[in-house]
Simulated scan of single mutants.
Amino acid sequence: FNQFRFFLNMYFLVVAGSQFIDILQVGYRWTYWAPLVFVLLITMCKEAFDDFHRYLRDKEANSQIYERLTSFGYEPIPSSAIKVGDFILVHSNQRIPADMILFRTNIDNEGSIFIRTDQLDGETDWKLRKAIPSLQKLESSSDLMKMDATMIVAAPTDEIYEFTGNFANDSLDEDHVEPLSLDNTLWANTVVASGTVIGCVIYTGKDTRSVMNTVGAPLKVGILDLQVNRLAKILFVLMVLLG
């Protein structure tokens, strides 16, 4: 139906439809419908081609293999199977598959890393992210599976520059609570610039910042099409006035 947003297409549709009224019929009906159907079919094929390529890109992204930390070590998992609460290992130059909280990194004792966010916000500057201090101090990543912890985060939103939450690790102290901020986040479709990180998934699929900020594919319209559409409106008005 997007094609009938163009005045010219709508005009020819109305004219072609009017040929089914005997008093308005001029010539053969197929001479009106054939050109209209031909143009619409070509446009539909082009849009189907674009949709198919988007489908292939989505399928490739959803089939990428990551490593999930379990009680028995790391196991491979496709990005489409990742769920909230999973501990996911992400290597350098690898795309982050879901919105996560940075738990640990192998860069330094401070747990600081850099990520590239150009696919999310268009900015080329690397962003600094920090691991949760108490988890960065653990002897090994396997200790994450032994802890008794609770993480409270805000409801999903499209704000990529805001985040609040709390992390309570009862394994250390019943009153041990660490605040979470934007510095602790790893948004989906950003890329780890260096090092290896382990994050806990907090949002997946449609709840991620990336998807919530995605605008539907716009209808591609050339400048020539816009000019023709504008001229068609002018000619129609002139035809009505002269008639």
Rank of each mutant, 00 (worst) to 15 (best):
T190W: 08
E75T: 14
F12I: 13
I223P: 02
S134I: 09
Q227I: 15
S140Y: 11
L235V: 14
P97T: 02
G205P: 00
V37Q: 03
F236E: 02
S194I: 04
W33Q: 00
F49L: 06
M44H: 07
G199C: 01
E110G: 11
F52H: 08
A34M: 15
I107H: 06
G73H: 11
V197P: 02
L24I: 15
E67I: 00
F49D: 11
G122E: 13
R68K: 12
T204P: 01
T157Y: 03
H91Q: 08
Y203T: 02
N62S: 12
V90K: 00
G243K: 04
W30R: 07
G165E: 01
V211I: 14
I101P: 03
Y11L: 13
E75M: 13
P133V: 10
V26R: 12
T204I: 09
F1I: 15
S134R: 07
V240Y: 09
V15F: 06
L36N: 05
V240K: 02
Y28Q: 07
N106K: 08
F72I: 06
K137E: 12
Q3D: 10
S18T: 15
F7Q: 04
C45F: 15
D148G: 02
P133A: 12
A188P: 00
E139I: 03
V237N: 03
P218T: 12
I160R: 05
L102W: 07
V197Y: 01
I132V: 15
Y203K: 08
D51Q: 09
N169W: 12
R95H: 00
M239R: 04
L219K: 09
V26A: 07
R29W: 14
G122P: 07
N2L: 10
G165C: 04
F72W: 09
R29Q: 13
V240E: 08
W126G: 05
L24M: 14
D183K: 11
V228T: 11
A16D: 08
H91K: 10
Y11W: 14
E123W: 05
A188Q: 06
F72D: 14
L128I: 09
P78F: 07
L135M: 12
T164F: 15
A193S: 09
A131M: 11
A155V: 12
P156I: 05
W30L: 13
Q64Y: 05
I77T: 08
P97E: 07
T214A: 13
V192I: 10
G111R: 01
V26N: 08
V221F: 12
E60R: 11
I202S: 02
F38D: 05
I113S: 01
F12M: 12
Q227W: 06
A193Q: 03
G73P: 07
A188I: 00
T208K: 01
N106L: 07
Y66P: 04
N169C: 15
L219C: 08
D121G: 04
D121H: 06
A168W: 00
Q94C: 01
D183N: 12
F103G: 02
F7C: 05
I160M: 15
T124Y: 14
T164W: 14
Y66Q: 03
